[in-house]
Design a protein around this nucleic acid. Structure first.
Lengths: 188, 188
DNA sequence: TTATTTGCAAATCGTTTGCACCTTA
DNA sequence: TAAGGTGCAAACGATTTGCAAATAA
């Protein structure tokens, strides 16, 4: 439905603050990581890294692959997958899942720790910060002697635009099986 | 910073029953849904439903399939998948994803709206409620004129038991690619 | 009767792996 | 040169779908 594979989700900022690290910083981190791990720097990795850092989206492996191919059509999907893993491992990328089946990646240095609102109609995502949320997490974890390593809050729903434009009966297929399937049946 | 005062009723899963609806209620909801949608009640669906309601876990389709097979080995995987969808659609089941690749289902009536802490070592999950969290969600959504339909907070980390028992260098493979991969490399 | 359901096998989809060949350190 | 990296194709694992036979309404 409203989920063209090649349409990259838009990104909105809730906060003036963006990247705390520049692409140059991140490149250095990546290369340091590669070296420390006894791996090798290659033209492919450099290119994939550059393209990744140049984007501000939540890129799926395929999104990135497409972008990379524009610059070098000989690079394979597999290498993109592997490099994405490597970047995650180096700490400059972070995996996010919006429930559309594919894993997406975003720059890890972007915001201290943000969360997402995901429009189930158009796929638009809004990022936001909440210090209260962080506090709640800390408190709850402490109560259970749980040692949190990461957390993720996702709010699904309709963005402002889709709210106006989408009649209540034309609901998405991405996120709300309950409503969606019931409606599909009802209409049939 | 100020301690969040009212992170109210926290409960750990497997601590007794806190279902607001009884299995009987849920069965009725399911059958009503089936009827309303012009579908048919079958022995398979009844059995799958029973087994699902009898469990208090986060069951994957395969988990449920296994349990169902004990009672009737002729039932196929596909039917379980389809029935799980149906139960979600009817509103008595809810999908949850803990990042292990498979979709899990839990009874929807269980708690008003709870969240999960997921141990990345042993997979143990702790459920909790937070009225503050609900408030934060409402407030943030309003700020963006976003209409939330559902939200999910997941806190990944080590549970109390695994914290004691797990040396820092034996990290899980489920959830923390960054740490895990780096370590795997370091050890090699 | 007749639409729906079932179970099987085959098909998908995103992602990973085996392998022979190429590259970096 | 040796340890790694690359791209392709095949393999994967969870989930879905096509289909002919079975069944509820």
């Amino acid at each position: 439905m409203a989920q063209p594979a090649s349409t990259l989700p838009l990104r909105e900022r809730s906060n003036g603050t963006h990247h705390t690290a520049t692409p140059a910083d991140e490149k250095e981190i990546f290369h340091r990581h590669i070296q420390r791990a006894g791996l090798k720097r290659t033209a492919q990795r450099d290119l994939i890294l550059d393209v990744f850092l140049a984007s501000d989206d939540h890129l799926s492996s395929e999104d990135l692959y497409r972008l990379v191919q524009e610059k070098d059509p000989t690079i394979g999907q597999t290498t993109v997958y592997r490099t994405l893993k490597l970047m995650t491992e180096a700490g400059i990328a972070r995996e996010v899942r919006f429930g559309d089946g594919r894993t997406r990646y975003e720059r890890n240095s972007k915001l201290p720790h943000h969360h997402h609102m995901i429009c189930i109609e158009c796929g638009h995502t809004i990022e936001f910060l909440s210090s209260e949320l962080e506090a709640i997490q800390t408190e709850i974890a402490a109560r259970y002697r749980f040692e949190p390593t990461q957390h993720s809050l996702r709010i699904f729903g309709l963005c402002a635009d889709c709210r106006e434009r989408t009649p209540a009966h034309r609901l998405p297929e991405t996120m709300e099986p309950r409503v969606r399937l019931a409606l599909a049946r009802a209409q049939k």
